[in-house]
């Protein structure tokens, strides 16, 4: 019985299933470690990807970085904590319900922030909106801190177990959950953006807001929808993150938010598949550096690599330099 312990010392994982038992020779160790790090990196990166999508979508329609987005991620975690008491813990139904309700709450929060703080500034200089976004971010962080002086321990929402794959690679059910949920959300998002009327309108507004209004699109409604969509994804990210790091506090969004923002830039800001790719890549790089003997410099090395990538691809990995015909 392998146990992964949470902050209170309780056993998180009750079952350990060995899918394939193998006596791995010593030279297989490094291969095993490599794949183990890939899996760990991807599951961290998937969470960055979920946050990065919100940055990139809002940038797509408004050409502005919503700095309060990382705090919506935090509110997602806290609303998960709040809703968890109404559902049985360690159950799939309960877990999914909590995730769904938190996504809903954050979607409304994102739309509210857009309506109250950003829409009145439409048409004023970008700098004003940017400063407002920082203000909203601080408002969320510090109004939560008024009530919460100590970090809270995030509940166990889903049943936990871990699997041993061939070669001794360990896959936890939380990682499986992160992969499955991120994949489903990405598919849903791609469907909305590519095949629904609202998604097509989002792409139209993103390309040219003036032309969009001339075909009868209400740009404000599309922008509001975009905030809702991005915030819902951040909420899902917040809960998945808290399942891995179960101590939640009002400033928990700052660093993951910053990294997700970098991931969005890395993938090509405004580009949806780019944000997902950037998030995954950042997660993997970070995990590998963390597992090496340079782990003290994790963030420094990870960010240096990103800077190098951006030197060679200034518009990001999937970002395109668009040329307009005259």
């Amino acid at each position: 019985m392998d146990g992964i312990y949470d902050s209170q010392g309780g056993i998180r994982s009750n079952f350990h299933i060995i899918l394939f038992s193998s006596n791995s020779p010593a030279n297989l160790c490094r291969v095993t470690e490599f794949f183990q790090q890939i899996i760990n990196g991807l599951s961290l990166g998937a969470i960055y990807a979920l946050i990065a999508l919100g940055y990139t979508m809002v940038y797509g329609v408004l050409r502005f970085i919503n700095f309060a987005h990382s705090d919506i991620f935090m509110v997602g975690a806290f609303s998960g904590y709040f809703f968890s008491r109404f559902f049985p813990s360690e159950s799939i139904f309960g877990g999914i319900s909590v995730v769904f309700l938190s996504m809903l709450v954050c979607a409304f929060l994102g739309m509210l922030i857009e309506r109250v703080a950003y829409r009145p500034l439409r048409g004023s200089s970008k700098l004003n909106v940017l400063i407002t976004a920082i203000g909203v971010s601080m408002f969320l962080e510090y109004s939560f801190q008024v009530k919460l002086t100590k970090p809270l321990s995030f509940p166990v929402l889903f049943p936990t177990m871990s699997f041993t794959l061939p070669g001794g690679i360990i896959l936890s059910s939380t990682q499986v959950l992160v992969f499955v949920m991120t994949l489903l959300l990405l598919i849903a998002l791609q469907y909305i953006v590519l095949y629904t009327k609202m998604g097509t309108a989002m792409r139209a507004v993103s390309f040219n807001p003036m032309a969009a209004s001339l075909v009868g699109i209400n740009n404000d409604a599309v922008i509001s929808f975009t905030f809702g969509l991005g915030s819902a994804l951040a909420a899902a990210g917040g809960i998945l993150y808290s399942l891995n790091y179960p101590s939640i506090e009002p400033l928990m969004g700052v660093l993951p938010g910053l990294k997700a923002f970098v991931a969005a830039v890395l993938g090509g800001i405004g580009n949806i598949p780019g944000a997902a790719l950037g998030g995954l890549l950042l997660g993997v790089i970070e995990t590998f550096v963390n597992g090496s003997r340079y782990s003290t410099y994790t963030d420094a090395i990870a960010f240096t690599l990103l800077i190098i990538i951006l030197i060679f691809r200034p518009s990001g990995l999937l970002g395109k330099v668009t040329v307009e015909k005259v």
Binding site: T200, A204, A211, A212, L214, V326
Partner: peptide, 22 residues
Amino acid sequence: PEGRMVFANLSVLENLQMGAYL
């Protein structure tokens, strides 16, 4: 509009569908 302003990132069909947005 001047300069046509078609949605260059959308297909021809999607452009026409957006024309009928309302």
